[in-house]
Design a protein around this nucleic acid. Structure first.
Lengths: 157, 157
DNA sequence: TAGTTAATGTGTATCTTTATCTTTTTTATT
DNA sequence: AATAAAAAAGATAAAGATACACATTAACTA
């Protein structure tokens, strides 16, 4: 896939227009690069992908555009505890998913749980807050690791 | 308070000794600075505090010592989504606490919930993982904000 | 289609964290 | 105590991610 899903593209372009932003070829390339995958990526990786669609995209424009995409609510900033920020394009389809990170092999498993969502919501409201971005990140180890010495597990969602 | 609680200090010094590390005046100052507060801090803030106890402490030593304190399990790395890493000295007394961050005033509320802990544990084990560091960070807004225009709330735990 | 103005790319700056290197300090051994 | 060996210290430079400045280009508006 080299294009973003039409509904997502539509929403973002509408958001930009209604905020008086111009639709440039670079922004279109970045949107396509950002939403034509379900994998997480860094700013640098997004730059590479966007450049395959429009070689004129610069690093600065990537860094300027990413916060815009996050503001639309369709892309999520994802703090994996690494040096760079990561971005997660699965927010639109799975707004409440969490991340399980293997300390050893670095693999990331996404998971959802309605119980957690509900409980988090109740707690936050009881403390007088209106919840926004909820990020649950669990670092641990594949149990396979202990017996086999490597982690082979790879799952999405 | 300008000294770390005796039991914490004891544990860390024991940890260092058993790992063949030397007990230097700088390390003692850093330990005292790190555990004589319940507030979160950055490396830079810890440097300032440690220097009031031993002016010879350098930035490099702060950065070299922080990972050691984290390894003892008594200090937790805390990702608040800011540029710098934060550190949370409340891990010893509240090993499973979570963080609620007001997007507007930046205030941070710590909270614990046994239900969340249990549910998280079950889920992670079902996915074949041995859980390690669990970090739940919720960004939101004080509800007071809507009516009063400012957030005054300030809570610990 | 011309004018306005936001957005772009390039290069540079900044900020946090890490690495290097030389000197100092700690601990073990006479 | 004196000394030797090793670890840790400070100072400084380097690295890496992100933000900024500014001159140029291109998107929208009338």
């Amino acid at each position: 896939m080299t294009e973003a899903p039409p509904d997502i593209k539509e929403k973002i372009l509408t958001f930009m227009e209604s905020n008086g932003m111009r639709i440039t070829s670079q922004r279109k390339a970045i949107i396509d690069a950002a939403f034509s995958t379900t994998d997480h990526y860094t700013a640098e990786e997004l730059l590479d992908r966007a450049r395959t669609m429009d070689s004129s995209v610069s690093r600065a424009t990537i860094y300027r555009t990413l916060p815009v995409l996050v503001k639309t609510g369709l892309l999520r900033e994802l703090d994996l505890g690494k040096d760079q920020m990561h971005y997660d394009p699965n927010y639109a389809t799975h707004p409440n998913h969490n991340h399980l990170i293997c300390n050893n092999c670095g693999k990331i498993i996404e998971f959802e749980d309605h119980c957690l969502d509900v409980r988090e919501n109740v707690l936050v409201k009881n403390m007088g807050f209106r919840p926004g971005n909820v990020q649950l990140r669990i670092q641990g180890n594949c149990e396979e690791l202990e017996t086999k010495g490597t982690c082979s597990r790879r799952e999405k969602e």
